[in-house]
Write a protein that binds this DNA or RNA. Structure first.
Lengths: 233, 233
DNA sequence: CGGTGTGAACCACTTCACAGCA
DNA sequence: TGCTGTGAAGTGGTTCACACCG
């Protein structure tokens, strides 16, 4: 589990919607599952089936879907294409969302090269790096976009109208880059650097730390080993 | 928040420990913060300070630390080095945990090259890929380890005694790789492929999907834009 | 029937507020 | 005095179980 919601005084007077955070985090998964079903020309699907394909309980699926004014048919199930449309709409992926990526190391490049982004509504408007070795080289093999120098950050954000930024730099640079992004107008940041960023409260941060994920796994692994053999459930 | 705890019938009769999942997810962060403080020769730290550096409330920090039989001093704070030792111990990072990585694309390479792993108790015992283009090339610039063919998977797991595996392949290959990992004895899997993996209940999965993280950010971004100006809190 | 939608119970985690102690 | 540790209250999310309906 990644951390970070705006923990404090958040919930800025939710007006219309009212979809729980936990549900939101699952919507993209449902979207993926439904898209795959649509691809396979499946017309109707039950909450049980969605559940199996998403790793969530069926009751939870129904509850989640009910939050978006559910369109299921009792005794039958959900109409795949119409449900997919609803989920997609709820996620706001009608338009192309411009994203700027800072750091052209492995992670930054991975994201920039990720084929799945356009179909999910994102467009990478720029990849920046401070290293002269990387600046000017193609963002991905066989891509026409080239890595730009960090000095172009404000220009890239402005020209691309980016409101979402990704920090894929070493930890030491992250806070500095973060401030420049915020200054340039970015309001949502996905941070891969292993540091806690300080930001104004109207900026949302999501933190993904690869080592942390491994450590959580390791903890359970350890407990499993320590928790003695006998007395298996 | 990443998904996936073993949701169902998990809680395999917890015996000694009893540390909540949410706390476990934060321990690595505290560890990082404490390590930085120790580096700076700070001797004593308060829950308030840890909170600020971790992006958590101070009450939450105290509660979390109390779960590991806390060693704070009332009216003073926590002794950095001893607390760090406790946290590290709780995370079970006394020993080197072998990890096998499948997929030598950007993400797999990023993880393999990540400097922070050894200090967190991990050792990458092998990076595998199916592509002949990648097999045999160095795992990272200036690393002596080389990418091995997927056919070596069982051998690498066995020789390295890996119990933790990382799947950094395209989605289509993930379930197949997953099954081979489990078959080979891996019990904990970190999955970067955008698919839900089916595994026996005694195998733990953690899912990290870069596009999903972006979509969650985008949702809030959208709501912010839609939720009209006036009536600001 | 069979599967959705949902009140109600349940559970896990967080926050409050303060007693207790160096 | 000041900060930890923790009962008690609060919050948010999940699961149960069943009424409802195509």
């Amino acid at each position: 589990m990644t951390l970070r919601h705006s923990p404090r005084e958040g919930s800025a007077r939710r007006i219309g919607g009212e979809i729980p955070d936990a549900t939101i985090a699952r919507l993209p998964v449902y979207q993926r599952v439904l898209a795959a079903l649509a691809e396979s020309h499946v017309v109707i699907v039950s909450s049980e089936e969605i559940a199996a394909a998403s790793g969530v309980s069926s009751a939870n699926v129904r509850r989640d879907l009910s939050h978006l004014g559910s369109q299921g048919t009792r005794g039958v199930g959900y109409h795949v294409s119409s449900l997919l449309a609803h989920v997609t709409q709820a996620l706001g992926i009608s338009s192309e969302r411009p994203v700027v990526i800072v750091g052209a190391g492995h992670i930054g490049t991975a994201l920039a090269a990720y084929q799945g982004l356009p179909s999910r509504g994102f467009r990478v408007v720029g990849v920046l790096d401070i290293s002269v070795d990387r600046v000017g080289s193609p963002v991905a093999d066989s891509a026409q976009m080239r890595v730009r120098p960090l000095t172009d950050l404000e220009a890239v954000v402005r020209e691309g109208s980016a409101r979402i930024g990704v920090i894929a730099t070493p930890g030491a640079a992250a806070q500095y880059v973060c401030e420049r992004l915020v200054q340039a107008g970015v309001r949502s940041i996905l941070n891969f650097a292993p540091v806690t960023l300080a930001v104004p409260q109207d900026v949302e941060i999501r933190q993904v730390d690869l080592a942390v994920e491994l450590q959580i796994l390791a903890f359970h692994e350890q407990r499993r080993t320590v928790t003695i053999p006998e007395c298996s459930a």
